[in-house]
Design a protein around this nucleic acid. Sequence first.
DNA 1: AATATTAATATGTAGATACTTATTTTTGTC
DNA 2: GACAAAAATAAGTATCTACATATTAATATT
Lengths: 233, 233
Amino acid sequence: MTAPGRLTWTDIRNRIQSRILDRTYAPGDRLPRDEDLALELGCARATVHRAMQDLAQSGLVERKRKGGTHVRAHPVTRATFDIPITRREVEQRGSRYGYQLVSRAIEAPPPSVMARFCIPRSAPMLHVKALHLADNRPYIYEDRWIDTGSAPEILEIDLTTQSANEWLVHNKPYSRVDVRFYAIKAEGEIASQLAIASGEALLIIERTTWIGDRPITTVQSATAPGYQLASQG
Amino acid sequence: MTAPGRLTWTDIRNRIQSRILDRTYAPGDRLPRDEDLALELGCARATVHRAMQDLAQSGLVERKRKGGTHVRAHPVTRATFDIPITRREVEQRGSRYGYQLVSRAIEAPPPSVMARFCIPRSAPMLHVKALHLADNRPYIYEDRWIDTGSAPEILEIDLTTQSANEWLVHNKPYSRVDVRFYAIKAEGEIASQLAIASGEALLIIERTTWIGDRPITTVQSATAPGYQLASQG
DNA sequence: AATATTAATATGTAGATACTTATTTTTGTC
DNA sequence: GACAAAAATAAGTATCTACATATTAATATT
C-alpha cells in the first residue's frame, strides 16, 4: 500500500501489536473497543477488525462478543507446520525419490489404532507398510491403516507402484486431521526397514484423518535419524 | 447465523470446500472468479472473499492477483501447534509443577547456537540450563541462550525461583519464532538430568525467537520419554 | 522478432452502513 | 437475597462502493 496517508490493516495490526509488546496493553488487559481504536488510529472499524482477526489468529489476543478483546494472559507459542507428500518433500530437497511397498493386508486394527480414530470397534481395515527413499536411502517408513468403508477405491489401486500416501492425498481429501509428534527408539522392523542400528532415536509423525466423522486413514511415519521438522515462516 | 436465507461466509467456504473435496474443482484447477462465485451462490463478493481467505489460510487453495484462485496442486497437511509455558502445561495435565535451575553462566555461544539465530558472530550470552518437573519427576530439561543485548533485564532476575521460560514469555514478546522438532538419543547431561537411562529416545523442541531481526533467545527443550505433542483443533 | 508500453483483469484493501448474536449487566419480581 | 427477564454492549457478519496492486495479455515501437 503506497497510498499516502491511508493506514492499512497491517499498519493497524503492527501498531496494536507494538502496544502489546511494549506492555501498553499487558497480558490479561482488555483492549479498547474496535470502534474506539478506529477513532483513535484514524481508520474504519472494519480495518481494526481485520487487524484484530489477525492478532487473534496468531494467538496474541482473544476476542469475545460483548466481552471485548483481551491480551492473552498466558501467551503460547503458536507455530504452523506444513507436511507435504513425501515424494515432493524428497524432491524438493533435491534428492531422487524412491518407494517400496513392504506389506499389504486386510486385517483387524489393534486397539491402539482404533483409539487414534476415537472409535470403539471396527471392521477389518487395509493395513499397508511402505518405505520412502531419498537417493536410494530409507527416508520414511510408514505404517498405515485405511478404512475401506471410507475409501473402497484404494483396494483397486496397485500399491506397489503408487504409494498410499500419494493416492490418498490426491483422492481422499479430509475435513479433519490430527497430527502428533513423538520420539521412539528404533527397534525390530522399523530399524531393519530404515537400515539403521537398533536404539537410534527417531522422530515419529502420526497423522489421522477423517471426512466428517468417518475415519479415513491413520499413519505412523518413522523418519530416518536426523530428520527435522521446521515451522512455516 | 440463524438468518433465514442469508448465507454466511462459513456456508460459502463449506460449499466451495465440498466442491474441492468432491473434485468438482480438482487439484491444480482454477476456480471461478470471486465475483462469479458470488453471483452463482447468491452472496456478495466480500463474502466469497472471506471464505477464500479461510481456504487459503488452511492451505487448500492459493490465490494470486489477476492469476485467480487455484486448488493447490500438491496438497499439504497443515497443522497448528500451541506450545504453552511449561508451568501451565504441567498444571493443565493436573500435575504439580516444579522447577530447578541447573546452571547459569555468561559465555560465548557455540557456532550451532549462532546458526540458529542466523548470525555470524556474537557477543557473550546468558546461558541457562534448567529442569521442569511434573509431580517431582523430570518433565523437560531446557538448555537456553539469551541475548543480553535484547533482554538485559534478565540479568537482574533470580532464575533460581523463576524460570527464564516464564519470565521471557511474560516480558519479552517476540515478533518472529522458529520452531523445530527432532529426536535424539538421551546421553550424558540430558540423560542424567532427566533421570533416565542413556539411549532413551527423546523428542526435542527447539525454539528461537527474535524481535524484529534482533535475537532474543533460543532454547532446546528435551522432553521426558513418552512426551507427545498434538496439533490444535 | 525482440522489447517496451499499454490495457485488461482478478484479487486485495478501505470505508460506510445496517443488522446479528453472544454475553454481560441491569432491572424487576418473587 | 435469589432468580428470571430485559436492556445494553461489543464483536461478528453481510453488502455496496470505490480504488489499489500485481500480473498477464495485447499492442505498439524499435
